[in-house]
Design a binder for these strands. Sequence first.
DNA 1: CATTTTGTTTTGAGTAATTCAAAACAATTG
DNA 2: CAATTGTTTTGAATTACTCAAAACAAAATG
Lengths: 159, 159
Amino acid sequence: MSTPELSYGADERPAVADAGLLEGGIRSAGLKVTAPRLAVLRALAERSHATADALFGAVREELPGTSLQAVYGVLASFTTAGIVRKIEPAGSPALFERRVGDNHHHIVCTRCGVVHDVDCAVGHSPCLTPADALGFDVRAAEVIYWGLCAQCQFETALP
Amino acid sequence: MSTPELSYGADERPAVADAGLLEGGIRSAGLKVTAPRLAVLRALAERSHATADALFGAVREELPGTSLQAVYGVLASFTTAGIVRKIEPAGSPALFERRVGDNHHHIVCTRCGVVHDVDCAVGHSPCLTPADALGFDVRAAEVIYWGLCAQCQFETALP
DNA sequence: CATTTTGTTTTGAGTAATTCAAAACAATTG
DNA sequence: CAATTGTTTTGAATTACTCAAAACAAAATG
């Protein structure tokens, strides 16, 4: 294995997400730019909410030698660095998303598990201040709406 | 309440939570009254938020033969029957609580993990309607506040 | 009160998602 | 380009939980 350039190769730059942008994002988060990191970020660019396992599946198509643990490691570093957000809805493996820094929430279908982003309800910071914070220094409020997506409403209404 | 005694024995009635009340709660949920169920409910009466494992620890002091799987089974039946609520904060095993039916929320310390109940902000049903439900039939909204509890604020402020 | 039915618990095994640790390796720094 | 620092691979372990069959107990029934 003698690849002088970054192992993804300068000439196999993806059409989808620009390598330079991805690279810049990683670098400016203070992280080293590596092939697995680029591959994970690229896979994440194509999915709004993905599990580590789904990303692993996508990544190994592009970079076959990548291990699942590497994907976990990449996601942990991205999450810590703040360029990826991790959500953990009850009953689901963790999901990762690129949309960060805007305090948005999620709506999850209890039947099929599909997840969508929802903006903060009622104008500004709804529920962001609990009735009584009990002395806590509150840093974040996480809201998950649970319900049936349109498709599942339709399917469960069938004879 | 002169209950005919059950397998736990009339003379080992707990001082803490009245056996008759616990029994009535289980029975009126449409479930059979068994010693493991009483023990779990009693353990839960003494803890506002407990993991299955913590309950198992408490239960086996009172009823040593009880298996962990039984505790999971009991909790699943209670949760389904609606007499216990299950919450699953990110990074923690599931927690169970007796307070049900009032749509309250939780505040969790990111440092020590302590959990407290918080009432619904802004009157009733706050945040229960997302900005855009995206066609979902929303059934529940779950809010978790994350922050540092008073004790952890104090401890992290030390030299 | 004995019996049957139904539901629960035990026992034992299995799984999914994630984490840990050491060695090999690759990206950036000097 | 060598040194340093950080990342990934490899392999194993762990946590929290679920599944299934057999044994058992509570409630319903005669």
